[in-house]
C-alpha cells in the first residue's frame, strides 16, 4: 500500500517515513505542496495521504481541495499543529478524512491510518466474533469468554476489550482508548485509563499465566496475540 506523506519538517518526515515503512507501507515523501502534486500525478494508486497543514508554499487544506478536484480518491489524514482544530478540518472529518493533533504517538497514527484505509475500502464480511489466543468476544451477544470461563464485564469494559482485540498485537495509546471507547478527545491529568485497564486485567487475566495486556510505559497498551 502506497502512502503520500506531505510534511515540511525534516525530522518529522524522517520519523514518519521510518514508522510507516516499518509497518509495511510504501512511502512517497513530499516536503512541499508542489512536490505533493507531482507525486500525486505520477503515483498510480495511493491508499492514503498524510498531510501536515502548515506547508511553506500553500495551505494544506487548499491543497487537499485541489487534489480532490483532480481526482484524489484516497482518504486524507491531517496532521495539525494548530491547537484547537479548525472548523474546516473538523468538517473534513465527516467527509471520510481524519485529523491528528501534534504531537501524536506513533501507534495512534498507525491506528488512525488503518481505520481510514479500512473505511475507504469496500466492506469485508462483517465480523461478529473476535478471537485472540483463548479470548473470544461475541460482538452480537456482547459476551466475552476466556477459555471456557465466561467473563463478567460492564458495557465499557467490553468495549475496551473489543478495542484492544481489534488492535491485538499493536500498541494503542491512552488518548486512542478515550477517543474510541468513550468518544472523548480529552487529556486527563489523572490516571483514569490506567485504572480501567487495571480492572479489566483483573477480570481477563488468570493468576500465574503470562499477562495478556502489556503496559508500554509512556506509549500505551498492547493485547498480546502470540
Amino acid at each position: 500500500m502506497r502512502l503520500l506523506v506531505v510534511e515540511d519538517d525534516v525530522q518529522n518526515r524522517r520519523f514518519l517515513e521510518k514508522t510507516l515503512t516499518e509497518s509495511g507501507y510504501e512511502v512517497s515523501l513530499a516536503p512541499t505542496a508542489a512536490a505533493a502534486e507531482r507525486v500525486f500525478r505520477s503515483a498510480v494508486n495511493l491508499s492514503a495521504v498524510i498531510l501536515d497543514l502548515g506547508l511553506p508554499d500553500e495551505d494544506g487544506l487548499s491543497l487537499i481541495t485541489r487534489l480532490k478536484q483532480q481526482g484524489l480518491r484516497a482518504p486524507v489524514l491531517i496532521l495539525s499543529a494548530r491547537r484547537s482544530v479548525d472548523d474546516r478540518v473538523r468538517g473534513l472529518e465527516t467527509g471520510g478524512d481524519d485529523y491528528l493533533v501534534k504531537p501524536f504517538a506513533a501507534p495512534e497514527l498507525l491506528a488512525r491510518l488503518r481505520n481510514l484505509i479500512r473505511r475507504n475500502s469496500p466492506p469485508v464480511d462483517n465480523v461478529t466474533v473476535l478471537q485472540v489466543l483463548d479470548l473470544r468476544l461475541d460482538l452480537l451477544r456482547r459476551e466475552a469468554t476466556r477459555g471456557d470461563e465466561k467473563l463478567q464485564l460492564t458495557t465499557h469494559e467490553f468495549s475496551l476489550l473489543e478495542f484492544l482485540c481489534r488492535n491485538a498485537g499493536r500498541i494503542v495509546s491512552r488518548s486512542m482508548i478515550l477517543d474510541q471507547v468513550w468518544g472523548m478527545r480529552i487529556e486527563p491529568d489523572t490516571n483514569v485509563v490506567d485504572v480501567h485497564i487495571y480492572r479489566l486485567r483483573g477480570k481477563v487475566e488468570t493468576r500465574g499465566s503470562e499477562p495478556l495486556i502489556r503496559t508500554i510505559r509512556g506509549v500505551g497498551y498492547v493485547l498480546r496475540d502470540k
Binding site: D9, Q11, K18, A81, P103, I216
Partner: peptide, 17 residues
C-alpha cells in the same frame, strides 16, 4: 512549540519500542 515536541516524542518512542 508542537513541531519540535512531535519530533522529540517520536524519537523517544522509537527508542522506547
Amino acid at each position: 512549540l508542537r513541531s519540535p515536541m512531535t519530533a522529540i516524542r517520536g524519537k523517544l518512542e522509537m527508542v522506547l519500542l
